[in-house]
Amino acid sequence: MAPILEVRNLTKQFGKGKERVTAVDSVSFAIEPGETVCLVGESGCGKSTTGRMVAGLLEATSGEVLFEGKNIKQLDSAAFRRYRQSVQIIHQDPYSSLNPTQTVRQILTAPLLRHNKVKPGATAEKRALELLEVVDLTPARDVIDKYPHQLSGGQRQRVAVARALTVDPKFIVADEAVSMVDVSIRVSILTMLARLKEEFHVTFLFITHDLALAKYFAWEGRITVMYLGRIVEDGPTQRLITDPRHPYTQALLSAVPEADPELAQHKRQIELRGAEIPSLLALPPGCTFHPRCPYFAPGLCDVAAPPLEAIPEGGRVACPVRRQERVSLLV
């Protein structure tokens, strides 16, 4: 199948002169229709910047974003508008992404009317009510005339999802979409998003720092791990979680605190050579993980950036030293 979205050598730099940083460095991946891909990494790894470029909110410094096979930079204005509708983004903070002076009705009907998705009047309201039901905000009539401040965090995030759905998107970038929602209701929002995938054939790029959440949401999909602007490893979720190959992925997975005392006791402790993440302003040469990596090979890792190469078990690993080695995360 042809990918619905592809990025090639996508690069984003911010700042000028000495202050110039490369937030995303030559990132390439492709997502097929219906696939769920999680982009994971720590703060500053470039995952959100990548998401914003994919959604057309930020222009790449170099490289290409292809949506349904077409480079978005070469689209005419009508086609670009269609692309912008097809790719929607859901932000982390439902407290600031919704206009506090508008009711849910206004939040939902404005884009419906603006993009000619319905005729004015009764049909716009009917569609808004339908969408509220799609995101499990029922009874929809009780919610539609409320202001965001009258809703809980979880309900607000559902309204944000409903708003994204007004323009019939094919692709949704969910950037830390449940990070601010209470743990007890996170799962129901993830389940709702998973249902959209099935019922509306929406493809998801799910951006999160929470590996356990990524594992749960993309169990049948793929995970891509970023570190300091580059992809260090990707692959089918079940392979990547159980058999991580890049030392950074291993360090990350072993570091995640586990909500289970037995697992917490048996987690392998991987000692890094350096605790602090290098600054984007002064990146180390070669593999940017080498100053912290327990498997650092002098003369190799600190010379050239290792290429992302496929492994037979599925996915790609940017580490020539450890690509073949299995490490158990539990001891």
Partner: peptide, 9 residues
């Protein structure tokens, strides 16, 4: 409601 990383699915 809470997933783990190394636990079974």
């Amino acid at each position: 409601a809470v997933p783990t990383v190394t636990g079974g699915f």
